[in-house]
Protein backbone atom coordinates (compact mmCIF):
# COMPACT_ATOMS: atom_id res chain seq x y z
CA UNK A 1 0.00 0.00 0.00
CA UNK A 2 1.68 3.19 -1.20
CA UNK A 3 0.53 6.48 0.26
CA UNK A 4 1.21 9.75 -1.50
CA UNK A 5 0.89 12.96 0.49
CA UNK A 6 0.48 16.08 -1.61
CA UNK A 7 1.85 19.11 0.23
CA UNK A 8 2.25 22.73 -0.70
CA UNK A 9 3.82 25.92 0.51
CA UNK A 10 1.66 28.79 1.69
CA UNK A 11 2.63 32.30 2.72
CA UNK A 12 3.34 32.44 6.44
CA UNK A 13 0.33 34.29 7.77
CA UNK A 14 2.14 34.93 11.02
CA UNK A 15 3.98 37.62 9.09
CA UNK A 16 2.27 40.81 8.00
CA UNK A 17 0.76 40.25 4.57
CA UNK A 18 0.73 43.25 2.27
CA UNK A 19 -1.31 43.67 -0.87
CA UNK A 20 0.80 44.08 -4.03
CA UNK A 21 0.86 47.44 -5.81
CA UNK A 22 -1.57 46.32 -8.54
CA UNK A 23 -3.99 45.07 -5.87
CA UNK A 24 -4.37 41.69 -7.57
CA UNK A 25 -2.18 39.55 -5.35
CA UNK A 26 -0.37 39.69 -2.05
CA UNK A 27 3.11 41.19 -2.18
CA UNK A 28 5.31 38.13 -2.62
CA UNK A 29 8.63 39.97 -2.31
CA UNK A 30 9.21 39.69 1.40
CA UNK A 31 6.97 36.92 2.57
CA UNK A 32 8.25 33.58 3.73
CA UNK A 33 6.62 30.25 3.08
CA UNK A 34 5.63 27.37 5.33
CA UNK A 35 4.00 24.02 4.76
CA UNK A 36 0.22 24.32 4.66
CA UNK A 37 -0.85 23.39 8.20
CA UNK A 38 -3.47 20.91 6.98
CA UNK A 39 -0.88 19.23 4.78
CA UNK A 40 1.15 18.71 7.96
CA UNK A 41 -1.86 16.90 9.39
CA UNK A 42 -2.15 14.81 6.22
CA UNK A 43 1.53 13.89 6.42
CA UNK A 44 1.22 12.93 10.08
CA UNK A 45 -1.78 10.70 9.40
CA UNK A 46 0.10 8.95 6.59
CA UNK A 47 3.19 8.44 8.76
CA UNK A 48 1.09 6.99 11.57
CA UNK A 49 -0.52 4.52 9.14
CA UNK A 50 2.91 3.44 7.98
CA UNK A 51 4.19 3.03 11.55
CA UNK A 52 1.17 0.94 12.41
CA UNK A 53 1.96 -1.33 9.48
CA UNK A 54 -1.25 -0.42 7.64
CA UNK A 55 0.73 1.13 4.77
CA UNK A 56 4.11 0.27 3.27
CA UNK A 57 5.47 3.59 2.13
CA UNK A 58 4.86 7.31 2.29
CA UNK A 59 5.89 9.55 -0.57
CA UNK A 60 5.51 13.32 -0.38
CA UNK A 61 4.93 15.31 -3.54
CA UNK A 62 4.79 19.05 -4.09
CA UNK A 63 4.63 21.40 -7.02
CA UNK A 64 7.86 23.34 -7.26
CA UNK A 65 7.70 26.74 -5.62
CA UNK A 66 9.49 28.99 -3.16
CA UNK A 67 10.36 27.18 0.06
CA UNK A 68 9.28 23.79 -1.30
CA UNK A 69 12.72 22.18 -0.86
CA UNK A 70 12.66 22.99 2.87
CA UNK A 71 9.18 21.54 3.17
CA UNK A 72 10.16 18.32 1.41
CA UNK A 73 13.33 17.87 3.48
CA UNK A 74 11.29 18.46 6.64
CA UNK A 75 8.84 15.78 5.50
CA UNK A 76 11.75 13.39 4.94
CA UNK A 77 13.11 14.23 8.40
CA UNK A 78 9.75 13.31 9.87
CA UNK A 79 9.90 9.90 8.25
CA UNK A 80 8.61 10.08 4.67
CA UNK A 81 10.37 7.54 2.43
CA UNK A 82 10.64 9.64 -0.69
CA UNK A 83 10.11 13.21 -1.82
CA UNK A 84 9.15 14.29 -5.32
CA UNK A 85 9.19 17.81 -6.66
CA UNK A 86 6.95 18.43 -9.65
CA UNK A 87 8.59 20.86 -12.08
CA UNK A 88 6.07 22.91 -14.05
CA UNK A 89 7.47 26.28 -15.12
CA UNK A 90 4.51 28.35 -13.94
CA UNK A 91 4.66 31.54 -11.88
CA UNK A 92 2.75 31.84 -8.61
CA UNK A 93 -0.02 32.14 -7.70
CA UNK A 94 -1.10 28.93 -9.43
CA UNK A 95 -4.87 28.39 -9.48
CA UNK A 96 -5.89 25.31 -7.51
CA UNK A 97 -7.50 23.74 -10.56
CA UNK A 98 -4.21 24.04 -12.46
CA UNK A 99 -2.45 22.54 -9.45
CA UNK A 100 -4.84 19.60 -9.62
CA UNK A 101 -4.17 19.11 -13.34
CA UNK A 102 -0.38 19.29 -12.89
CA UNK A 103 -0.48 16.86 -9.98
CA UNK A 104 -2.79 14.46 -11.83
CA UNK A 105 -0.27 14.42 -14.70
CA UNK A 106 2.65 13.88 -12.32
CA UNK A 107 0.86 11.08 -10.46
CA UNK A 108 0.83 9.00 -13.65
CA UNK A 109 4.49 8.24 -13.03
CA UNK A 110 4.22 7.89 -9.24
CA UNK A 111 2.85 4.59 -7.90
CA UNK A 112 0.03 5.26 -5.47
CA UNK A 113 -2.95 3.58 -3.83
CA UNK A 114 -4.23 6.45 -1.76
CA UNK A 115 -3.59 10.18 -1.92
CA UNK A 116 -3.65 12.45 1.14
CA UNK A 117 -3.68 16.21 1.20
CA UNK A 118 -4.82 18.96 3.54
CA UNK A 119 -8.52 19.74 3.67
CA UNK A 120 -7.85 23.33 2.62
CA UNK A 121 -5.11 25.91 2.35
CA UNK A 122 -4.64 29.63 2.84
CA UNK A 123 -4.86 30.30 -0.91
CA UNK A 124 -7.56 27.98 -2.23
CA UNK A 125 -10.40 30.46 -2.56
CA UNK A 126 -10.90 28.95 -6.03
CA UNK A 127 -11.76 25.50 -4.66
CA UNK A 128 -10.12 22.90 -2.41
CA UNK A 129 -7.54 20.59 -3.89
CA UNK A 130 -8.87 17.18 -2.81
CA UNK A 131 -12.17 17.27 -4.79
CA UNK A 132 -10.48 18.95 -7.76
CA UNK A 133 -7.75 16.31 -7.81
CA UNK A 134 -10.32 13.54 -7.36
CA UNK A 135 -12.31 14.88 -10.30
CA UNK A 136 -9.17 15.22 -12.43
CA UNK A 137 -8.08 11.63 -11.70
CA UNK A 138 -11.61 10.21 -11.71
CA UNK A 139 -11.08 8.91 -8.16
CA UNK A 140 -13.55 9.22 -5.30
CA UNK A 141 -12.74 11.88 -2.72
CA UNK A 142 -13.67 12.82 0.81
CA UNK A 143 -13.04 16.18 2.47
CA UNK A 144 -12.80 16.98 6.22
CA UNK A 145 -11.35 13.61 7.18
CA UNK A 146 -10.29 13.15 10.82
CA UNK A 147 -9.42 9.44 10.93
CA UNK A 148 -8.24 6.86 8.40
CA UNK A 149 -8.04 3.07 8.65
CA UNK A 150 -7.00 0.82 5.80
CA UNK A 151 -8.78 -2.40 4.99
CA UNK A 152 -8.46 -4.68 2.00
CA UNK A 153 -8.75 -2.32 -0.99
CA UNK A 154 -10.68 0.18 1.09
CA UNK A 155 -10.04 3.21 3.20
CA UNK A 156 -12.43 3.57 6.12
CA UNK A 157 -12.53 7.23 7.02
CA UNK A 158 -14.28 9.48 9.45
CA UNK A 159 -15.55 12.74 8.07
CA UNK A 160 -16.38 15.37 10.62
CA UNK A 161 -19.40 17.64 10.64
CA UNK A 162 -20.30 20.61 12.79
CA UNK A 163 -20.61 19.86 16.46
CA UNK A 164 -18.39 16.77 16.36
CA UNK A 165 -20.82 14.51 14.46
CA UNK A 166 -18.87 12.10 12.26
CA UNK A 167 -19.75 9.96 9.29
CA UNK A 168 -17.85 6.72 8.91
CA UNK A 169 -17.43 6.15 5.18
CA UNK A 170 -15.77 3.39 3.24
CA UNK A 171 -13.99 4.48 0.10
CA UNK A 172 -12.83 2.27 -2.74
CA UNK A 173 -9.15 2.83 -3.63
CA UNK A 174 -7.50 4.66 -5.23
CA UNK A 175 -8.98 7.78 -3.69
CA UNK A 176 -8.14 11.30 -2.55
CA UNK A 177 -8.61 12.33 1.08
CA UNK A 178 -8.65 15.90 2.35
CA UNK A 179 -7.36 15.63 5.91
CA UNK A 180 -8.64 17.98 8.58
CA UNK A 181 -6.75 16.53 11.52
CA UNK A 182 -4.48 13.57 12.13
CA UNK A 183 -5.08 11.19 15.01
CA UNK A 184 -2.24 12.89 16.86
CA UNK A 185 -0.49 16.25 16.59
CA UNK A 186 2.19 16.51 13.88
CA UNK A 187 5.55 15.29 15.10
CA UNK A 188 8.73 17.28 15.50
CA UNK A 189 11.42 17.31 12.85
CA UNK A 190 14.78 17.75 14.61
CA UNK A 191 16.83 20.49 12.97
CA UNK A 192 19.99 18.38 12.87
CA UNK A 193 18.18 15.70 10.89
CA UNK A 194 16.77 18.22 8.41
CA UNK A 195 20.21 19.73 7.94
CA UNK A 196 21.79 16.33 7.51
CA UNK A 197 19.19 15.35 4.90
CA UNK A 198 19.81 18.60 3.04
CA UNK A 199 23.40 17.47 2.64
CA UNK A 200 22.78 13.80 1.86
CA UNK A 201 19.29 13.21 0.44
CA UNK A 202 18.13 14.05 -3.06
CA UNK A 203 14.69 15.21 -4.06
CA UNK A 204 13.34 13.38 -7.09
CA UNK A 205 11.81 15.47 -9.81
CA UNK A 206 9.00 14.87 -12.26
CA UNK A 207 8.48 17.28 -15.09
CA UNK A 208 5.02 18.08 -16.43
CA UNK A 209 3.99 20.30 -19.30
CA UNK A 210 2.11 23.50 -18.84
CA UNK A 211 -1.63 23.08 -18.70
CA UNK A 212 -4.11 25.28 -20.50
CA UNK A 213 -5.56 27.83 -18.10
CA UNK A 214 -8.79 26.80 -16.41
CA UNK A 215 -11.85 29.02 -16.23
CA UNK A 216 -11.70 31.16 -13.14
CA UNK A 217 -13.27 34.13 -11.52
CA UNK A 218 -11.20 37.24 -12.17
CA UNK A 219 -9.63 38.97 -9.20
CA UNK A 220 -10.69 42.60 -8.92
CA UNK A 221 -8.71 43.47 -5.87
CA UNK A 222 -7.35 42.22 -2.58
CA UNK A 223 -7.81 44.13 0.62
CA UNK A 224 -7.19 43.73 4.30
CA UNK A 225 -10.19 43.70 6.58
CA UNK A 226 -10.42 46.87 8.60
CA UNK A 227 -9.36 45.93 12.09
CA UNK A 228 -9.51 48.24 15.03
CA UNK A 229 -6.51 48.06 17.35
CA UNK A 230 -8.55 47.98 20.49
CA UNK A 231 -11.98 46.77 21.37
CA UNK A 232 -15.13 48.66 20.63
CA UNK A 233 -16.78 48.93 24.01
CA UNK A 234 -20.44 48.14 24.46
CA UNK A 235 -21.73 50.48 27.12
CA UNK A 236 -24.94 51.47 28.83
CA UNK A 237 -27.43 49.82 31.15
CA UNK A 238 -27.38 46.08 31.67
CA UNK A 239 -30.17 45.69 29.12
CA UNK A 240 -28.33 47.80 26.58
CA UNK A 241 -25.13 45.79 27.10
CA UNK A 242 -26.97 42.51 26.64
CA UNK A 243 -28.75 43.79 23.52
CA UNK A 244 -25.41 45.05 22.19
CA UNK A 245 -23.79 41.66 22.72
CA UNK A 246 -26.67 39.87 21.06
CA UNK A 247 -26.49 42.09 18.02
CA UNK A 248 -22.72 41.48 17.77
CA UNK A 249 -23.36 37.73 17.89
CA UNK A 250 -26.18 38.03 15.41
CA UNK A 251 -24.13 40.05 12.92
CA UNK A 252 -21.37 37.49 13.12
CA UNK A 253 -23.86 34.75 12.37
CA UNK A 254 -23.12 32.81 15.52
CA UNK A 255 -26.53 33.13 17.07
CA UNK A 256 -28.42 29.94 16.43
CA UNK A 257 -32.08 29.20 16.43
CA UNK A 258 -33.12 32.71 15.49
CA UNK A 259 -35.15 33.60 12.44
Amino acid sequence: MNLVVVVREVPDIQEELEVAADGKDIDRTFISFVMNEFDEQALEEALVLKEEGQADSVLVAALDGEGVDDILYTALAKGADEAVKVIHGLEPPIPTRVRAALLAAALKSIPHDLIFTGVQSAEDWDGQLAPLLGAALDYPWVEVVTAVRLEDGLAVVEKEFKGGLRAELEVRLPAVLGIQAATKPPRYAPVSRIRQLMRTATLKTVEVNEMSPAPAAKIRRLSRPVASRSAEFIEGSLDEVVEGLLSVFRNAGVLRGEG
Binding site: E15, E16, V34, G79, P185, R187, Y188
Partner: peptide
Protein backbone atom coordinates in the same frame (compact mmCIF):
# COMPACT_ATOMS: atom_id res chain seq x y z
CA UNK B 1 14.73 14.12 20.17
CA UNK B 2 17.02 12.94 17.42
CA UNK B 3 15.74 9.38 17.65
CA UNK B 4 12.20 10.61 17.02
CA UNK B 5 10.70 10.20 20.48
CA UNK B 6 7.84 12.58 21.20
CA UNK B 7 8.67 16.05 22.49
CA UNK B 8 6.14 17.69 24.88
CA UNK B 9 3.89 19.83 22.64
CA UNK B 10 4.68 23.17 24.32
CA UNK B 11 8.37 22.57 23.86
CA UNK B 12 7.91 21.44 20.27
CA UNK B 13 6.04 24.65 19.52
CA UNK B 14 8.81 26.74 21.08
CA UNK B 15 11.43 24.89 19.00
CA UNK B 16 9.43 25.38 15.82
CA UNK B 17 8.85 29.06 16.57
CA UNK B 18 12.51 29.64 17.34
CA UNK B 19 13.62 27.84 14.18
CA UNK B 20 11.19 29.81 12.07
CA UNK B 21 11.02 33.25 13.69
CA UNK B 22 14.06 33.40 15.95
CA UNK B 23 11.93 33.74 19.09
CA UNK B 24 9.92 31.24 21.13
CA UNK B 25 6.63 33.17 20.95
CA UNK B 26 6.39 32.98 17.18
CA UNK B 27 6.35 36.76 16.80
CA UNK B 28 7.45 38.38 13.58
CA UNK B 29 11.23 38.96 13.47
CA UNK B 30 10.49 42.28 11.80
Amino acid sequence: INSGRPVPPELQKAFENIARYGNPMGESPR
